[in-house]
Design a protein around this nucleic acid. Sequence first.
DNA 1: CCGGTTGTTCAGCG
DNA 2: GCGCTGAACAACCG
Length: 240
Amino acid sequence: MEGPSINILVEEVKSFRKQKIESVKGIVTTIDIVELTGKDVKAFKSWGKHFLICFDKFYLRVHFLMFGSYTVNTPKDRPSKLSITFSNGTLHLYTCSIQKHPGKPEKNYDWSSDLMSKKWDPALTVSRMKKFKEHQIADVLLDQNIFSGSGNIIKNETLFWLQIHPERLISSFTHKQLSEISTRTRDYCYNFFIWKKAYTLKKHWKIYGKKKCLECGTDVLKKPTGLTKRRSFFCPNCQK
DNA sequence: CCGGTTGTTCAGCG
DNA sequence: GCGCTGAACAACCG
């Protein structure tokens, strides 16, 4: 699950904000769920791919990784990791990593790297990119400390949009190009958010999962690239 | 039905 | 203590 999806989740649970937890259940073992009962949720936040459930003196950090999912109200046909019931509904979390952290998330998170945040800072992003001169752009676009919330779909689609080869090194770009890459990645995240809410995300994929380049008809290459070895889909003709 | 994956963490090594 | 590698985990889709 990529960053924009977490922002959609935050929207979906808006009605639970500032509500008291009536009951909890789940198979999660990393936290003590009993103590959640009766507490008020102060806020739901996101940072990158992290979904944060904030309480007065601590917060829960939920990460959905590859296979995580959630539902609001309608449970799935298997036990949830954690289900939180309020007077007006229940949030069910499945197959995710849940951690409890003391204090406020503001102490641990810097939103200047979060692509979906109002605090996202393009100049800081470019300066962070420049520290990885000999790394491939595809790897840097997956680095959560630089592009918090970016994932493999966002990486591939943004690089195709920019007609950039995923294995190009950071050192091969000018400052202006790095700036362009960062702002387009942010723009793609906003599109992802809109498209996903409209259930038209897949329809907009131009390279991810494709066999032929939609621009020129060339066979799309599908290759594990860089240190991360995540699959890069790219057109060897269009992307330089 | 099998192979692949919208991802991260950690053990083990040199 | 570092950088690097591969394993482990997990559920759904085509």
